[in-house]
């Protein structure tokens, strides 16, 4: 009986902590949402209250002056194409590293992981020169390609981890049935590894969607900019239009949230699987 009570108290503490953190997670979002209806001065003098009027002028500004709709389209193009290529090629490489027999596989694996250890800020200038030489500056490729290259380490880290946990027997059976390596990959391994692939795709989509640095530097034409860059358009030389920026921020985070809410089940599964055997 005694145990039951302590268990109950423990349960109570757990719930308090969970609810507290829930509030902490949601409140800032709620605040951003409210702030998006305020004027710049209200932001400072009525920071935590309701806006005086539910005027959508900030959103209108964000769309008209800030060009948010156009940026949105560019963001989708860049994020989707980078994720698709990075995940397909990364998964293929993972397969060879995790399942196939060759001497260099460990070395190649470690070389890829090196990419997780470099800050992207250090690569900007050499990349800029490369893209200039290839004539790709100010095209979406200049953002997509590095995102692909830098997406590999994470993809390979997680997908390899998952694939290594799949029993050898499955493939052996397939090979005896006359499958080629490609068929083994497509028909045996990929269906099992699906959830880890989805996880990687979602995490990368979110990263690329939120990335500010690459589009900021490699794109010059405002027609080609992405959403987060649009946010900085509200920062003028001597002052910042915070409420306009917040309205744009709201429009930026909504897609991330939708993607996450739609796919969170798969993300969980993928994490389970991918993380289990690293």
């Amino acid at each position: 009986m005694k145990k039951n009570i302590s268990e109950k108290i423990w349960m109570f503490i757990k719930y308090i902590a969970l609810i507290l953190f829930t509030v902490m997670c949601l409140y800032p979002l709620f605040w951003l949402f409210l702030a998006s209806f305020k004027t710049n001065q209200e932001l400072y003098f009525n920071t935590w209250g309701l806006p005086e009027s539910w005027s959508i002028v900030n959103y209108v500004n964000a769309v008209v002056k800030g060009g948010v709709v156009r940026y949105f389209g560019n963001s989708v193009v860049i994020a989707v194409s980078a994720v698709v290529v990075a995940v397909i090629l990364g998964t293929m490489a993972s397969y060879a590293i995790a399942r196939m027999h060759w001497k260099m596989s460990k070395l190649v694996y470690n070389t890829f992981l090196l990419g997780m250890m470099i800050p992207i800020y250090g690569l900007i200038i050499p990349l800029f020169s490369i893209f200039k030489a290839l004539g790709l500056l100010n095209t979406h490729w200049a953002v997509i390609i590095p995102q692909i290259a830098l997406g590999f380490p994470m993809t390979i880290f997680i997908v390899c981890g998952f694939m290594r946990s799949i029993p050898r027997e499955l493939e052996e059976a397939a090979v005896i049935d006359g499958c080629s390596a490609l068929q083994c990959f497509m028909k045996v391994i990929l269906p099992i590894a699906k959830s880890s692939v989805v996880t990687v795709a979602v995490v990368q989509f979110i990263n690329i969607w939120n990335d500010l640095l690459l589009p900021r530097i490699f794109l010059t034409d405002s027609e080609k900019m992405t959403l987060p860059v649009g946010l900085t358009n509200f920062q003028a030389m001597y002052s910042t239009d915070y409420v306009g920026m917040i309205a744009a921020v709201i429009m930026t985070i909504i897609p991330s949230i939708i993607v996450y809410v739609l796919l969170h089940r798969q993300i969980m599964e993928g994490m389970v699987a991918g993380a289990v055997k690293g």
Partner: peptide, 21 residues
């Protein structure tokens, strides 16, 4: 013309300068 916001200006110009573009 291309208008670049102040927060990005230095980074962008530096990058362009050192890569001759």
């Amino acid at each position: 013309p291309e208008f670049v916001s102040n927060s990005d200006y230095k980074t962008k110009l530096t990058t362009m300068m050192v890569s001759d573009s």
